[in-house]
């Protein structure tokens, strides 16, 4: 099983695409994000350096986009979503400009760098902005597919990527479709796990364990968090009667909240939100941080059993 970080898979694919697609430009703010640091050496005219100045980065990207350019920009998710939050809102989303924000170093997987660099609120923030689309791949294969699909996307787009290598879940025939949930595994209809991002692998491992214990789970990859595939959520609620969400992000306002908003309004069923428990990230082995927040495989298995018992 191949392992590669989603950020590196995305960045390398975009570099490859740049050879044949000459229509996009890249804005950088002196961060090592996703391997795109070499873009400027290969395509000096198409790369714009803004220095360590994220507000200026977003403003400049908006100006470039307003002139008809397809603009990608890359920085850490924390800085894109918070340091430059207002610029994203008022000068990318409000004028509905064609800017793709690549936000890297998502979630607790950042590990050693700790709370200042771990983006755990970015989905909540980006999701609240009108006109914004929010997506997150779950492995290197889907990250590459997303890079290809993003070329034809128009409008404000936030792409959330993780720092460290993760095992591949998908095969190379995977096609990324915006706004479409993907049922990855269907053991049965006892409950549904709706997952976004790299924790998909943990969900699949947990579902396999639960299957051996007589609980049969549907596992859905919700790569597009906004606009949410509401039909897939409602199907999960109706057909399986219990929904668990799993995300490497705070449980306040992210995927779990998005799914819950649909479930409570359309077909209320018991839910459990797996994610960061309203606390900051910290330094350390990501697996230990996941365990502390009840996001490791054992915790997911235990929470799933409690959820099914509430049906």
């Amino acid at each position: 099983m191949d392992t590669l970080a989603t950020r590196m898979a995305f960045g390398k694919e975009l570099l490859k695409l740049a050879e044949t697609n000459t229509d996009f430009v890249l804005c950088n703010a002196d961060t090592k994000t996703c391997g795109l640091e070499v873009f400027g050496k290969l395509y000096p005219e198409r790369e714009f350096s803004f220095g360590i100045a994220e507000q200026n980065l977003i403003g400049g990207a908006a100006g470039l986009a307003s002139c008809g350019n397809k603009v990608y920009l890359a920085t850490f998710g924390v800085f894109a979503s918070m340091r430059a939050c207002e610029q994203v809102r008022t000068f990318v989303c409000y004028p509905n400009l064609n800017v793709t924000i690549i936000g890297t170093h998502a979630g607790l997987q950042v590990g050693g760098d700790g709370a200042t660099h771990a983006a755990i609120e970015d989905v909540s923030i980006m999701r609240s902005l009108p006109n914004m689309t929010v997506v997150q791949p779950s492995d290197a294969v889907s990250a590459r597919a997303l890079a290809r699909a993003s070329l034809d996307f128009t409008g404000p787009l936030y792409i959330r990527l993780h720092r460290n290598p993760v095992p591949d879940v998908y095969n190379d025939d995977y096609v990324f479709t915006f706004g479409k949930a993907n049922t990855v595994k269907e053991y049965g209809a006892d409950m549904t796990m709706i997952v976004s991002g790299i924790l998909l692998k943990k969900a699949l491992d947990a579902a396999e364990i639960l299957h051996t214990q007589g609980i049969n789970v549907r596992v859905v990859d919700m790569a597009t968090i906004k606009p949410l595939d509401e039909a897939a959520v409602i199907r999960a609620a109706k057909e399986t009667g219990a929904v668990m969400t799993i995300e490497d992000h705070t449980v306040l306002g992210g995927l779990g909240a998005a799914v819950a908003e649909v479930v409570v309004q359309s077909h209320p069923v018991p839910m459990t939100l797996v994610g960061i428990q309203d606390r900051f990230g910290e330094s350390g082995d990501p697996e230990l941080l996941y365990r502390d927040n009840g996001m490791d495989v054992d915790s997911i298995v235990a929470k799933a059993k409690r959820l099914v018992a509430r049906k």
Binding site: N56, I58, G59, G60, L64, A65, C67
Partner: peptide, 13 residues
């Protein structure tokens, strides 16, 4: 915010 956006427009030119 406007000067940053102007920077982007001038870059595009």
């Amino acid at each position: 915010n406007g000067l940053s956006i102007g920077v982007g427009m001038a870059m595009s030119a």
